[in-house]
């Protein structure tokens, strides 16, 4: 406990650093997953392709992905870019599937009604389908955000300092409270971001049912987890 109190500023600095590294992958993953999820939802042919490829990417263990990305993209192995790109790939893999499922959850009758009253495909997507798919998309976004935050700690193995630093440093110095503080800090950051996403969802989608637990559970099960 004294270790934690003596090192609050270190923990705070690492937390901010951690958040900074996670925000880009979460946002970028969300933006990239929208067209991918749409393509997977809309065409039978691309559905199998997109879902298989994202599923396989999600299967790759993080440490292996860190090792493969530099070779494919020509970036440095020990670099923040490597971590951010890897995290983005996982986020896209989670969200492409959930956005495709979310679009599939929109009542076809509503889609047809929108077409019937003269909505073009572009306007129909953004003003009818996307908002109605919102609650399920949010569920996927929450899963992606929380997993990204937990997964980012592995970055310390490729020399990127964030809350994962407390794990390696604590192991070398054999300070249990340091490692414990790291685990708790990561979980708190994930919890806060998750709560903020729920709050944002309530503000942006006041029409959405409050309880989407059933959908989230099923989604979570399909997505599983990566480490």
């Amino acid at each position: 406990m004294t270790w934690v109190l003596d090192n609050l500023d270190l923990i705070a600095a690492l937390t901010l650093e951690h958040l900074r590294q996670c925000l880009l992958p979460i946002l970028l993953g969300f933006v990239l997953a929208i067209p991918l999820g749409w393509v997977a939802f809309r065409f039978r042919l691309t559905r199998g392709l997109v879902l298989t490829v994202t599923g396989l990417l999600y299967t790759i263990p993080s440490l292996a992905l860190f090792a493969i990305l530099p070779t494919v993209l020509g970036i440095r192995f020990l670099s923040e870019a490597n971590l951010v790109i890897a995290l983005t790939i996982y986020a896209v893999a989670i969200m492409a599937r959930s956005i495709s499922d979310a679009l599939g959850s929109v009542d076809p009758a509503v889609r047809q009604a929108a077409t019937a009253v003269g909505y073009g495909p572009w306007r129909r997507f953004w003003t009818v389908e996307f908002p109605l798919a919102g609650p399920v998309i949010l569920a996927g976004l929450r899963v992606a955000a929380v997993s990204t935050i937990a997964l980012a700690t592995v970055g310390i193995l490729i020399g990127v300092e964030n809350l994962g630093y407390l794990f390696t440093n604590g192991l070398q110095r054999r300070i249990i409270p340091e490692v414990f503080a790291g685990v708790i800090a990561v979980m708190l950051v994930a919890l806060v971001i998750d709560a903020l996403l729920v709050l944002a969802g309530r503000l942006l989608m006041p029409w959405a049912p409050r309880r989407t637990a059933g959908r989230r559970r099923r989604l979570a099960l399909r997505l599983g987890e990566a480490a």
Partner: peptide, 19 residues
């Protein structure tokens, strides 16, 4: 199962090894 997603696996591993 929701909270488990937020647990950093590397951190849990190191913590248990030390304990």
């Amino acid at each position: 199962s929701g909270a488990a997603r937020a647990v950093p696996s590397f951190g849990l591993l190191v913590l248990l090894v030390l304990i």
